[in-house]
């Protein structure tokens, strides 16, 4: 059975993943829209930057974030000056890291969805009195519904599954940064295989059902490249 500590990690994981997904959609939408529409020479650079977590070992990303958030890092100095202390080994730090880590999993499906909307459709809306914001809300959003669903699900599940980054910047603090993947690792280290089975089984069932929904309900399931 799941112990209270295991349940805590599940709850914490859910909180991190939900908040990260919300922030990812908030940040990812304008980034993806810009990437889908711009002809700026900076497009390639931004694209590469956003996609970096796809290929970078999570420990590398975690290491740099640890430095950045630490008392001598740029971000750490800012948060210290603001009286917030350093973000490493905190819940907030974990969320920031998750957002960076899962960004391509949200931006890419959105970008694909936005690319599928013809420029002429946007222009047609403008000739029909729709302001740019109104066009986005009443034409772009409904036409990229499946892109948003894919982005949300991939962002959430990918955050649930993160391990390397968490270990590097979050550590293993109960109720603060100890997420499911870390807890499984703890159980295995302590040779508590039954406990590990329970948690691993939960994640397996969760991940599979999400993908099942994705591939059976959605008309355009995400590509392998987006799933990595």
């Amino acid at each position: 059975m799941l112990s209270p500590a295991d349940l805590d990690t599940l709850w914490l994981t859910f909180k991190v993943a939900s908040l990260s997904t919300f922030l990812l959609l908030l940040i990812g939408t304008p980034v993806a829209w810009w990437l889908a529409r711009t002809q700026s020479p900076a497009k390639g650079f931004i694209n590469a930057l956003v996609s970096l977590p796809l290929v970078l070992p999570p420990t590398v990303l975690g290491f740099y974030l640890l430095i950045l958030m630490g008392p001598n890092g740029a971000l750490g100095k800012i948060t210290n000056t603001l009286g917030l202390g350093t973000l490493s080994f905190t819940f907030a730090g974990l969320v920031i890291a998750s957002v960076l880590y899962s960004l391509p999993f949200v931006v890419q499906p959105l970008q694909t969805a936005f690319n599928g909307i013809a420029q002429q459709t946007i222009e047609a809306a403008a000739t029909l009195r729709a302001s740019p914001l109104n066009t986005f809300l009443s034409v772009v959003l409904p036409l990229s519904k499946s892109g948003f669903l894919t982005a949300g699900i991939l962002g959430f599940t990918h955050t649930v599954g993160e391990f390397g980054v968490v270990l590097m910047i979050g550590g293993n603090i109960p109720d603060k940064t100890r997420v499911v993947s870390v807890q499984i690792y703890n159980h295995v280290e302590a040779l508590e295989y039954t406990q590990a089975h329970w948690l691993a089984g939960c994640l397996l069932a969760f991940s599979f059902s999400v993908l099942l929904v994705l591939y059976t309900v959605l008309k355009t399931p995400p590509q392998v490249q987006q799933l990595k």
């Binding site: 013809a118 002429q120 459709t121 222009e123 047609a124 809306a125 000739t127 034409v139 409904p142 036409l143």
Partner: peptide
């Protein structure tokens, strides 16, 4: 104004 494009771009949704 009213604008009619070459491709009929009705909103599919």
């Amino acid at each position: 104004l009213g604008y009619v494009f070459q491709e009929a771009n009705l909103f599919p949704h």
